[in-house]
Design a protein around this nucleic acid. Structure first.
Lengths: 259, 259
DNA sequence: GTGTTTCTTG
DNA sequence: CAAGAAACAC
């Protein structure tokens, strides 16, 4: 049976609720990872999601960050954050076990400007995430790491690699940090199915007509361990939600598996 | 042929653009007077109005006030304000000649609290408006005075005359000031067709369920000189726009004439 | 450009 | 309750 997992940076789950519900109804993923829900837990829109037939786990705060995982099956073994006393990580990393799979949903810090404390925090977040996988899981087991990673890895992953080289989200230090995490034993399922070619998941609101001119970035990912890579049948970006009225600046990335 | 004129306090023309365009398309008034456009002239949404088949003249400012007149025919002899050096009156009174009629669109000051300088300005505005009609026009000619006058005249014009008596927008001094203007030779076309009965044009956002409980005020008017009063065939309040999502706190008042 | 919050106004 | 402004973040 085909098992579908998707990821979407909603940029406010409340502002995007209609788009998300329509997308769930149309694509019926087994799991949807959401980032930037931007809502305190007491205001999270649980009801319409339940009504759509999904289980939901989440953690958020006012204004910034916030992650959620929606599942057709009941998830178990839910955990948040990277351990230690970094409470911000709790609204950036949400891990669930569902249908016998481990799903780790992350909203990696954006980093603001190269050289700032925010940028250092981003690199450190990757480092701790690498340790998190290393010490907590086996890459021989089926594990999915999905989310907005706020890093484009190659020249094919940004609209203008020359101009953007060294900028935040396209800087060698970030790329190395992300690769180091993946080195543990993760495969970029989108690239597995599309080894070359541009396909973006994010288009800045601030660039006029960025979608029409395809001035985008591939910064949302679904990485999987080998047992799942072997069973992956397809991966694609769905442009449609980014072309709807009042879109997020990101769109949905989808991966299918034959389980 | 039936000639239709309407007035609407939009409470932001940008926030109400869809409601206004839908209403224009459905009711096709020859003239629509708008108040509280709340937009500087450089940001006024001219294009969609032209595309709807209307000419438009307007004057506004940031945040507060602002008036506009939309016409199927091209208006001429456009003027703003009451003369003198009161620049606020320029974004509260807009006069056009169109189809051989004089249309004076006003957004009368709300007055804030009885006894304040704002209340005094409101009374003075009425006084100067009386002089404006007296010295500039003949009540034997067809003239229309429309807009948000921020005064309810009778006990039939507010939801609770006992409680509201003496309050701002239902105070004897305001009522006298409005009547003194009308005394020049103007007929309240809504009351001409509905000599009694409650029919409101404004429901405060702050009163819970004010529309359902009909806790309203009749403070928007279309007044006409005798030549037009004789030709008036109907006048009505259209509740529908006040029941739509994201409504203004006012709704449309309409008057039809056989010209 | 599009979210968020907080403030001010009616 | 719902406009607008201003500040902040991405």
């Amino acid at each position: 049976m085909t098992y579908r997992i998707a990821t979407f940076n909603a940029n406010s789950i409340r502002a995007r609720l209609d788009i998300i519900l329509a997308w769930l109804s149309r694509h019926r993923p087994n799991v949807l990872c959401l980032q930037e829900t931007k809502v305190p837990d007491e205001d999270f829109p649980i009801k319409p999601i339940i009504q759509a037939g999904y289980q939901v786990v989440f953690k958020g705060q006012k204004s910034y960050n916030g992650v959620a995982v929606l599942c057709l099956s009941q998830p178990d073994e839910v955990s948040w954050g990277l351990g230690g006393d970094d409470r911000e990580a709790d609204v950036r990393l949400l891990s669930v076990r569902v249908d016998g799979l481990r799903v780790v949903n992350t909203y990696i810090p954006q980093g603001r400007e190269v050289g700032t404390p925010h940028f250092a925090y981003k690199l450190d977040f990757f480092k701790r995430l690498g340790e998190y996988f290393q010490s907590g899981f086996s890459s021989q087991e089926p594990l999915i790491w999905a989310g907005d990673l706020n890093v484009a890895l190659t020249d094919e992953d940004v609209y203008d690699p020359k101009r953007l080289s060294g900028q935040v989200c396209f800087h060698p230090d970030e790329q190395a940090a992300l690769k180091a995490v993946a080195q543990w034993g993760l495969v970029d399922v989108f690239r597995r199915h599309h080894p070359e070619g541009r396909a973006f998941t994010f288009w800045d609101y601030r660039l006029p007509k960025s979608v029409d001119r395809n001035l985008g970035w591939r910064i949302d990912y679904i990485w999987v361990t080998q047992p799942l890579a072997e069973r992956s049948t397809d991966a694609f970006v769905d442009l449609e939600p980014r072309r709807m009225p009042k879109p997020s600046d990101h769109t949905f990335l989808v991966a299918d598996f034959e389980l």
